[in-house]
Structures are given as C-alpha cells and as structure tokens.
C-alpha cells in the first residue's frame, strides 16, 4: 500500500513581476512523519517555495499537494493541514499573545472556548504563559519567535513548516525550541525546517533537500548525504610551534599560525596513522576539532559547484 506524501511538489515554477525566476521547476516529496530539512543559501528560493505552500505567493505554474490536497484546486482544505512559522515576525505587536493565538485559531474556524484551551496549552509548553496577557511588543526576541510557533500550533496542523525559526535566538532557547519541535514531530506532525544553523538540521532532520538558484540540487537522507563527505578538515592545536609543515601521506597540512595547523584528510585515512606520523616528527598535539560542521562543509561544496555530484567531485 502506498502512503500519500505529506508534501508532493510537482514542477513548481515562480517568476516574479520583475522577471526574477525564483523557482525553475521544483519537485519534492516529503513523507508523513518526516523531519525534513530544506536548505539553501540566501535567495535560493526557499522562502518563495514556502510562500507558495502557505498561499502567500502565487505560483506561475506547477502544483503542490498537502496530504493529497492540491493547494491550487482546494486551497482552503490544503491550508487547514498546514501550520506556518514564517521567517519574519508577522503578528500584531499591540495584541496580547493569548489573543494572537485565539484569533489564529478563529481564522481556522476553531470555536473560541476550544481556542482558549489550546492557547493556554501551547503558551505554557513554550514558556510564554506569564507573558500571555501583555502586549506582544514587550516580549524579547526569543519569546516572539516562540510565540510564532505557539500560533502555528493553534490549528494543530499535520504539516508544520518552520522558516528559520531559531534565527537570532540564543542557544538555550534554541535548544528548548528543538526539544518542543522534536516532541511535536514524535507525536506525528510532519515537520519541514529551513535554517542557516546547519548543526540544527544535522541533529534534527532525517531527510534533506538543498535548493540553489531555484532548483533542487540534492534530495536524499541526511545519512546518505553525510556519507558523501569524503574529505574532512581538522584544526590541530600544537604544544609547541613547529617550524616546517609536516609531510604525511594522505594528509594535506596548512598553517593557521605558529601553533595551529589545519589537516585536510580523506575519511579513508585513519587518524591514528596521522598522529603516529606527527609523533615521529616530534609534533605534540594538545587538542583537535573539526574545522566546520560536516553538513556545513558539504553544503558549501554543493552550493559552490551547483550540482548534486559536487560531494563526490570535491572528494
């Protein structure tokens, strides 16, 4: 038996009035229950795609189905299935968080009594209840971001789209947001996340699509994407300055400063042999770390080359 995808985007195109081709035929499928990362550099087309899915942007051609419901033919029914946390703050700053949530539920046809109960539930879960009856403009940046999530949850959507929900949020609040979103996903809600914090995508998401210049350049599982990373770069902090760059087969060293080296090596090459070679040359390593997040390294390579084969090619 085949399952209806949570999201099925078919040849979606968007050309703006100024001639900018934001989407050049995007096709994408997200399975129910997935935690899906949609990544791309600024201006790649992510927000346009999300705008179309949430009916804030009119597509030029193509279609998208939310759990089998077309956003073009059955807009109202499709919107009932989606919750959106947009990138920009878009609530009335003069309203109170409780009213913002209750009104949002009202737009989805949820009666006021039930909406009040849901508002209390989600505002409490997101630690906003003590601010529920104060104007939203008095809240901190992190609180405003969490309010957007609480508001999106008011209709208890089957598909939750989060467009950079943790932008500008400190790490503590970011982690609490991850926890909340993971719990929502574990309870059965399909989640699509766009973010510039790639460690966030790597930690949370099972599947991933990378969009660049209006085209999907990669669409696979997180595991299989990360396995494409054949070269890793490590930063080595040395005990003492070393005069000359060491020569170790299979490892390319470069100098950052007197006591810091970068070592680029194939994943096939084991770390023990590199350390043995360094020890032999009298170079003691005090500590070591990855130069960049693994996904970040792949992402940069894919976007730089602009093709799905970039991972292999770069290796």
């Amino acid at each position: 038996m085949t399952t209806t995808p949570a999201l099925d985007v078919v040849e979606l195109k968007k050309t703006y009035a100024n001639g900018v081709e934001a989407l050049k035929g995007v096709s994408l499928r997200v399975q129910p229950g997935d935690f899906f990362a949609l990544l791309g550099p600024n201006g790649a087309g992510k927000s346009t795609l999300i705008g179309i899915l949430s009916s804030l942007v009119n597509p030029s051609s193509g279609d998208a189905r939310i759990f089998g419901v077309s956003i073009r033919e059955q807009r109202s029914a499709a919107m009932r299935l989606i919750g959106l946390v947009p990138q920009e703050l878009n609530f009335n700053m003069f309203e109170k968080p409780f009213d913002i949530c209750v009104n949002q539920a009202g737009f989805y046809g949820i009666p006021r009594a039930e909406a009040g109960e849901r508002a209390e539930k989600y505002l409490k879960q997101l630690q906003l209840w003590d601010k529920a009856f104060q104007p939203a403009r008095t809240m901190s940046g992190g609180m405003k971001r969490r309010l957007m999530i609480a508001r999106a949850m008011m209709s208890e959507p089957k598909l939750l789209i989060l467009d950079e929900p943790t932008a500008g949020v400190d790490i503590e609040i970011r982690r609490s947001m991850w926890k909340f979103i993971s719990a929502i996903n574990a309870a059965g809600t399909t989640v699509i996340l766009t973010t510039h914090y790639l460690e966030e995508a790597e930690q949370l998401c099972r599947n991933i699509a990378i969009i660049d210049k209006g085209r999907i350049i990669e669409n696979t599982t997180m595991k299989s994407l990360l396995s494409k990373l054949d070269v890793e770069t490590f930063v080595l902090d040395l005990e003492r300055p070393c005069a000359n760059l060491p020569e170790v087969p299979g490892v390319a060293f470069s100098r950052v400063d007197d006591v810091t080296l970068e070592a680029e090596m194939s994943r096939e090459h084991d770390l023990n042999s590199m350390f043995a070679a360094l020890t032999e040359r009298g170079i003691a390593v005090r500590s070591m770390r990855n130069k960049a997040n693994r996904l970040e390294e792949l992402f940069v390579r894919l976007v730089e080359t602009g093709s799905a084969d970039a991972g292999k090619a770069a290796a």
């Binding site: 949430s54 009916s55 804030l56 807009r75 109202s76 029914a77 919107m79 009932r80 989606i82 959106l84 947009p86 878009n90 609530f91 009335n92 009104n103 949002q104 737009f107 989805y108 046809g109 508001r151």
Partner: peptide, 9 residues
Amino acid sequence: YVEEMLASP
C-alpha cells in the same frame, strides 16, 4: 499580520 489571514483556510 495580514499573512495570518491569507495563509489560513
């Protein structure tokens, strides 16, 4: 915040 309404059913 008009988007709240435009993105609703």
